[in-house]
């Protein structure tokens, strides 16, 4: 009925989807700064490249689906997906790897599932996992962090020339990540590892500690702006800490790594505050989000320690995306006026 147009509420707060997305982008700045400081300008090149291609893909898909392009481009969701994927990719992966990733994320994982709000899986993580499975070599070449033996900072130009295939330099700079080393190790105690390998840094891996601290900062900012609630990230971190404590085994040679190590290594903080909190593909209720986050934390540990892949955030989040509808089903909140 036409009269529906004039029903309450007549007031609205200032929040808009675009504003939410902008806040997320803003919150990535400290983490990205740390990444750039330790691993060179590759991440920035990736971000620019991914955002550009993502916008083009989004434009194509919107046109093709006959949607108002300007209206949807303004929601910033494509940019957020692009930035998150760019951050997750190795800084010096070739341009076509990121392009494939972006196309996969935007065209398939997002639009073929119905566009923003309808995608059951986090598009950036779908793309990441597809790339990891199909291009394991390119996807595991991480540069050595600044401060590790023989590492030097890679500038914009070098990064650009490398990523676009004009002057590959990455082979000279790769170094196994701490998570890799930890997984391969079966003889050294944790303390020995930290002494032996220059990339181990203080507790979470050289550079990685700072990157994670950066994303933690950004995440806390988002929490303070009420972009999401604490339930998913905190329960994920708590669960990860708990299981790694159980598996720590006093840091012996069969140790899975200390809770600190797990919290501040790899993509933990990025995952906790930027990926797992992606509202579209997570559980909805508070209880549900606690369960959702906790399961991700446990899965991260299991995959890191027992799985075949070095990092586990993407896999864990995707697995839990599958489970989100079930979680929703069993965690419907108690409505006012129903038995406690």
């Amino acid at each position: 009925m036409a009269l529906l147009n004039i029903t309450s509420p007549h007031a609205h707060n200032k929040n808009h989807t675009a504003w939410v997305m902008q806040q997320v982008l803003l919150a990535t700045i400290p983490g990205v700064a740390a990444l750039t400081y330790f691993f060179g300008a590759g991440t920035l090149i990736n971000i620019i490249w991914c955002v550009t291609t993502a916008l083009i893909c989004e434009w194509i898909m919107l046109k093709w689906r006959g949607k108002p392009v300007a209206f949807y481009l303004k929601d910033y969701s494509a940019i957020v997906t692009a930035v998150l994927l760019a951050i997750a990719l190795p800084p010096y992966c070739p341009w076509w790897v990121s392009l494939i990733g972006i196309m996969f994320a935007i065209m398939i994982a997002k639009h073929l599932y119905g566009g923003l709000g309808y995608n059951p899986f986090n598009p950036a993580m779908v793309a990441y996992v597809i790339l990891l499975i199909s291009l394991p070599v390119q996807m595991t070449q991480w540069a050595a962090p600044l401060g590790a033996d023989g590492a030097s900072w890679i500038g914009f130009k070098a990064a650009f020339l490398n990523n676009f295939g004009f002057a590959p330099i990455i082979d000279a700079h790769t170094m196994a990540t701490v998570l890799d080393v930890m997984k391969q190790n079966d003889s050294l105690t944790n303390n020995q590892l930290f002494e032996e390998y220059s990339q181990f840094g203080h507790f979470g891996g050289l550079g990685w500690e700072w990157v994670n601290l950066g994303f933690l900062m950004g995440g806390l900012y988002l929490l303070s702006r009420k972009i999401f609630t604490w339930h998913t990230p905190i329960s994920m971190l708590a669960a990860l800490a708990l299981v790694s404590l159980i598996g720590y085994n006093a840091g012996g040679s069969d140790s899975g790594g200390s809770p600190f190590f797990h919290l501040f290594s790899g993509a933990t903080m990025l995952g906790a505050f930027f990926i797992a909190t992606d509202p579209v593909s997570s559980a909805v209720s508070r209880k549900g989000r606690i369960a959702f986050g906790a399961c991700i934390g446990v899965l991260v540990y299991i995959i890191r320690v027992y799985g075949n892949y070095p990092d586990a955030v993407a896999f864990s989040v995707l697995l839990m995306n599958f489970a989100a509808p079930f979680i929703d089903h069993y965690t419907q909140p108690r409505t006012y006026g129903y038995n406690k």
Binding site: N15, V20, L116, K226, P279, V284, R289
Partner: peptide, 9 residues
């Protein structure tokens, strides 16, 4: 209206 992003707000 834009699509619901399930933000939970």
């Amino acid at each position: 209206a834009q699509p619901c992003i399930r933000c939970g707000m």
